[in-house]
Amino acid sequence: MFKIENLEISLIKKNKIDKVLIKNISLRIPNGSIVCLVGESGSGKTLTGYSLMRIQPSQNLKITKGKIFFDNINLLELPEEKMRDLRGKEIFMIPQEPLTALNPVLTIETQLTEIFEFHTNMTKNEIKKECLRLLELVKIDNPSTRLKSYPHQLSGGQRQRVLIAMAIALKPSLIIADEPTTALDVTIQGEILELFLELRERLNLSILLITHDFGILKSISDYVYVMYGGKIVEEGTKEEIFSKPIHPYTKGLIDAVPTIDSTPKTPLKTIPGYAQISDFYCPFYERCNSAQSDCKSEFDYIFINQKHGVLCRKIMK
């Protein structure tokens, strides 16, 4: 079980908090579950994902509050060398931009091999076989040739699949997958999702899946968190979120999902405006059409039932 409690991540300037980017987030990833994180671009999904690995993508960011648990261990209090063992072995992150995670001057084989050499006692031969098997598993054609390729010699979707192969290499407890299938066509995407489901079944793998693809959400998520402006504004099982969304942002998002029977060339439905930095308690205040003055100041996150929580004033009345 992975658990984030009241996490706050801030932008630090001259040893002071300049801006709070992640505001008091709590979420749970039970063993063997697929938990999805959706939300506005820039709302904090990637930063939240990285925090589970205790990594900040840049030095001016810092966890300023909260706890992160892996079973009963608070990861934030773990010595760095222990954390290093966990990364890759127990927790693996597939980053949003695969090229940033791959070393441009090493072949795919070298990079996969390093993972095994660092964390296991496998022989060279065993590793070689395992590398091939992994590329086959993620449906890369000509796997033995691709092992000798460099990252720039692969297509966008092939790179994404190499990272998925790296992620499952050591059979971790948790994979954080940040938009892992954006460059994959529906067929291969389906096969990758099947693979995730199978690993979950066989190894009790948990996945935190960051995605904006509602098709994926509907097909494989057990539980969904919706983020906006650094906060979780709604959460619930996918049935709750899709059939009874409460937060106006969630509703707007679901309305904006593209459909196959739209009238071509007409304006698509959007949530008017763009996110702004907000000092109000409800980060969606400026764009919400049911906003009232009491949305500006603090109010409680409410669970309307065991499977559905929301941060919205409306529900309290």
Partner: peptide
């Protein structure tokens, strides 16, 4: 435009596509 909106949430994606049109 090579996958220009693939990492955008559906609302912003729609805003960008509306802009293109």
């Amino acid at each position: 435009a090579d996958e220009p909106v693939s990492s955008l949430d559906v609302s912003i994606q729609a805003q960008i596509l509306n802009l293109f049109m």
